[in-house]
Structure formats: structure tokens, C-alpha cells
Amino acid sequence: MNKRNLLDNLGLWTFRIIAYSVVGAVAYILLDIVVKGAPSIHWDFLSSPPRKSGAAGGIFPAILGTVYLTSGAMLVAFPLGMASAIYLSEYARQGRFTRAIRLAIITLSGVPSIVFGLFGLGLFVLFFGFGASILSGCLTLACMILPTIIVASEEALRAVPQYLREGSLALGAGPWQTIRKNVLPYAIPGMVTGSILGIGRAAGETAPILLTAAAFYLPRLPKSALDPCMALPYHLYVLATQHPSADQVRPMQYGTAFTLVAIVLFFNVGAILLRAHFRKKYQW
């Protein structure tokens, strides 16, 4: 009996150590970035353009570029993703068309980000002639985060209990009326929180914008959607790997990394908290 207890405890602790070591790794990485990055963060760093090829000055144009790219991508992907999810959850019947759409979404979610970059380069930059620009970058990122938004939105729609639909349909309402009045109001919070995760992903991606939108240094801020822009992840990549004196600009690198992580985690933690809030609010 004792031997059994011992083995049981040993097993339990092995699994516990494994699980917490993953958490430990996360904590170590985040702490490293925060501890070494936070001292570089001050108003000047956030609000001025880089000087001396990134060795001094700030990262304001990169922050702005990331905001442009991310909000543009969301503007395209969010309505499209929500509408796709409404179709899949509310209208679609089992059949070849639905299967094909689902297959496409699964395929899209597995396409490597650099391949999205190649695709954006071929289609938006060259074929449509948008050039390396904010527009090309937004559209490429939108294609990339579309599956995330569809899957999250569909989950939110499916969480709305069936009897709300049946009640409405039984009273003679059409499907669209039912969706508009009895499904969407309850599903929208979940759809939005799920989509916030897409924002985090779009803000942090580097590979697609590397080929479609980003420039390391621009003397002026972009004037239109057809101008290229700077972006936080690309700025960090160049500072860390291409800069002639990469070791000396370490504080700038950590500062950029900190800003990027802060933006991404802000959206993610926000989404997690909102989700918990709405789960408590709507308990069917």
C-alpha cells in the first residue's frame, strides 16, 4: 500500500513539475523582457522617431505603423470573419459547399506566416500594384487572422442556446430576423473577445509584413495607405540582427520588445478577462 502511495505521489509530482516548468519558462521570458525593457521606456522613447539608425531616439513611427497595420487588418477581417461565422453556424447545412469552406478555413489556419508574405507579395504588392504599402500589409494580415476570427465567432454563436432560435422561428420570424434579434445580441460579446485575440496576433507578426509593408527606417510618417510604414516587430528584428553595433543598442532592443509585448499582452489579457466576465453574465 505504501509503495503504491509513493509511486502515485511520484507520478503526481512529475506531472506537476512538468506543468509548472512551462509556466516558469513563460515567467522567465516575460520577466527578462520587463526587467531589462522597462528602464528604456520613457515619454521621449515612445514619442520621437529613431535617430542614428536606431541607436538613439525613439520608436514612435514603428508604434504608429503597427497601429495602422493592425487596425486596417481588423477592419477587413472582423466583418468578414463574423459574417463567415454567421453563415457556418446559422445557415450552413451539411453538404459539399460547407465542407469545402471548413476545409479552406483549416488550410488557412495552417498556412505558415511567411507563405502569407509570399502570397501578399505576389497578389497585393505586384499583381494589384499596391507596392510595399500599408494597404498590402493590412490585406495580407487580414487573410492571416481570418481563420482565428471565424473560429472564435462561431464558437460564440454556438454557445447561444438553441431554444432562443426555436422560439423565434416558431413565431414565424425568418432566419435573419431570428439571428438579428435573438442570436447576435447574445453572441456579439463572445465574438468580439475572440477576435481581440486576432488583434494580438496581427500586431506581433513579422514575416508577412516583412515582404509586403515594412521599412526599417522612413524619414517621414506615412501619408497614405499606399506608403510603406515602420512596424514594431520588424524594428526589433532589424535592431537585433542587422544593426552594425547590435550589442550597444541593446537598451533600444529591449525597449522595443517591451513595448511590443505590452501591446500584445494588453489585448490578450483584456480578451481573457472579458471572456470570463461574459461567461459569468450569460450562464444558460
Partner: peptide, 24 residues
């Protein structure tokens, strides 16, 4: 507690992980 921590790991941009890898 554990699940959000792991979701946080998924959220860290790959370029930041790469930077951490390069420096640490």
C-alpha cells in the same frame, strides 16, 4: 491559473521569442 499562463506563452510574438533566444 495554469491555462491563462499557457495562453500568454502563445501570445508572445515570435520575433520577441527570437530576440530572447538571441540574447539569452
Amino acid at each position: 491559473f495554469l491555462k491563462p499562463c499557457i495562453e500568454m506563452l502563445a501570445a508572445i510574438p515570435s520575433v520577441v521569442l527570437g530576440f530572447f533566444g538571441l540574447v539569452v
